[in-house]
Simulated scan of single mutants.
Amino acid sequence: MTMPEQDTEAMRALRGLEDGDPSVRLRAALAAGTAPDPRFVDRLVERCAVEPEFPVREMLTWALIRHPASATVPRLLGELRSERARARSQALHTLSKTGDRRAWPAITRELLTDADDEVARAAWRAAVALVPEGEEPALAAVLSTQLGRGGRETRLSLSRALIALGEAILPLLRAAATDPDPRVRAHAAATERLRRDPDAGSEFAIEEAKRILALGTDGREG
Rank of each mutant, 00 (worst) to 15 (best):
A49W: 00
E133R: 15
V41D: 06
D21A: 13
A164F: 05
A35T: 14
A87W: 00
T113A: 13
R88I: 01
I212N: 01
C48K: 02
R183S: 13
G219R: 03
L60G: 07
W62Q: 14
T8N: 12
A115T: 11
I163A: 07
L147G: 06
G150P: 06
E58N: 12
R27Q: 14
L14E: 08
G201T: 07
T94C: 15
K210L: 14
L173Y: 01
P22S: 11
T217N: 10
S89I: 00
R102S: 14
W124L: 00
L77A: 09
E5I: 12
L77Q: 09
L112K: 05
I169R: 03
A188G: 05
A10T: 15
F54N: 12
V184T: 08
R195N: 08
A214R: 14
A161K: 01
V24A: 13
R66C: 15
A91G: 05
P55G: 09
T61M: 11
P55E: 07
A13K: 01
T72P: 05
G148P: 04
G201Q: 10
T113Y: 03
F54E: 15
L130R: 02
V73W: 04
L156K: 00
A115K: 12
P180S: 06
P198E: 02
V41I: 12
L77D: 03
D100S: 09
R155G: 12
L112Q: 05
